[in-house]
Simulated scan of single mutants.
Amino acid sequence: MKNIAILCSGGDVSGMNPALKHFVEYSIQKGLTPYFVYNGYEGLIDDDMKEASYSDVSGIINRGGTKIGSARSQRFREKKYRDIAKQNLDARGIDMLVAMGGDGSFKALDIFYKESGVRFCGIPATIDNDINGTDYSLGVDTALNIIKVSIDAIRDTASSFRRAFVIETMGRDCGYLALISHLTSGSELCLIPEVDYDLKKYEQEFKKQIKNGRRYFIAIVSEGIKQDSSEISEWFESVIGMESRVSILGHIQRGGNPSTYDRLMAYKLVNKAIDGLLDGNQMSVICYTKSGFEFKTIEEVTSKKKELDPELLSYLERF
């Protein structure tokens, strides 16, 4: 019987627990013994691993976050700690890993594979959806739905008080969350790192809209833009002439009950990852594109920054 382990690395996302549940179920179905690695690569180093069973994943499919914890490991950057991780895996006869995380996590495993021969498959899991080579990352759908609910709630108070609200989403240097939320919420302004902007070009139009009866504005901005959200809010007050507030959604975007779509994709991604390892894949990331599921190399997903869909960007530019 072969042994296989799963871990979470980097930021947690809703969808990890459904993935853990199916990992255990599908591994056993395929004749494998599943193991959990707790707290990411730190668990590999600290030997914080255990064989997983059905009871370990009972009742977790509706929970956000990850039951087995996650972490960003500085120690795993050092070879001496990677050697310890290899010894711990060998002691349990584990030679296959499934890792949920981002491109940094996959780079670390690429180095680990070349040193140790432990095969792995990466599952993109980040609400930022900023991993090159895949259109979808686990957790992004739930995050978008949380943002949607937040914007709809803020719109109620914005219209009641004749205010402009600047709503800041996560994303680091990727504006995906802000862009999709803008296109699906009917907001009046969207600012993302990928598109240069000049607030002056909005002044005349926004003042005209106020004169014609507009009671509020919703502006969605990504955390990676060149100005702070407070500066955008000040612009609404001092230039546009409307009282303004800032709402930074923050880590609320990473939690919550996983959406139906994230649960389904967790199921499919785990299936593909395990099947790929059993078919002999050595080191790959299972990606989802318009062509369907594809195994891609670490170099393909980490060699360059992800670019937003040109079609989606064209909608923003036309607006």
Rank of each mutant, 00 (worst) to 15 (best):
Q253C: 05
I123T: 04
N62T: 13
T66L: 00
C121K: 05
G117M: 04
I123P: 01
S230Q: 02
I147Q: 05
G133A: 05
Y113E: 08
G117D: 11
F23N: 06
V98R: 00
D309M: 06
L308A: 14
G102A: 08
K268R: 03
S55E: 13
E188C: 07
E234M: 07
G276R: 02
L312M: 13
D90C: 01
K226S: 15
E294V: 04
L269N: 01
G59R: 08
T142N: 03
G64P: 00
E42Q: 01
D90T: 04
S160N: 14
F36H: 15
M1D: 08
S303E: 11
S259C: 01
I298T: 11
T142E: 09
I151R: 00
G15T: 03
R77P: 08
G255C: 08
F165D: 01
M96E: 06
Y315V: 03
F106Y: 04
H251A: 04
R254T: 00
M283F: 07
Y202E: 10
D262G: 05
G117T: 08
G280M: 13
R172E: 12
F112S: 05
A164L: 06
K114R: 15
V239T: 15
V301A: 07
G224E: 07
I210L: 15
I192H: 07
S116A: 13
F76S: 11
D83I: 10
V239F: 05
G241W: 11
A219T: 15
K304M: 01
K290V: 08
K268C: 04
R318T: 14
Q29I: 04
A219L: 10
V221R: 06
D128Y: 00
F120M: 06
I4R: 01
G139I: 06
G241E: 09
D198V: 12
F76K: 11
M16A: 01
D83N: 05
D275C: 09
Y41N: 14
N88S: 10
K79V: 13
V140E: 00
G31L: 10
I225Y: 04
D12E: 14
D198R: 05
D103W: 04
S291T: 14
E205W: 09
Y136G: 09
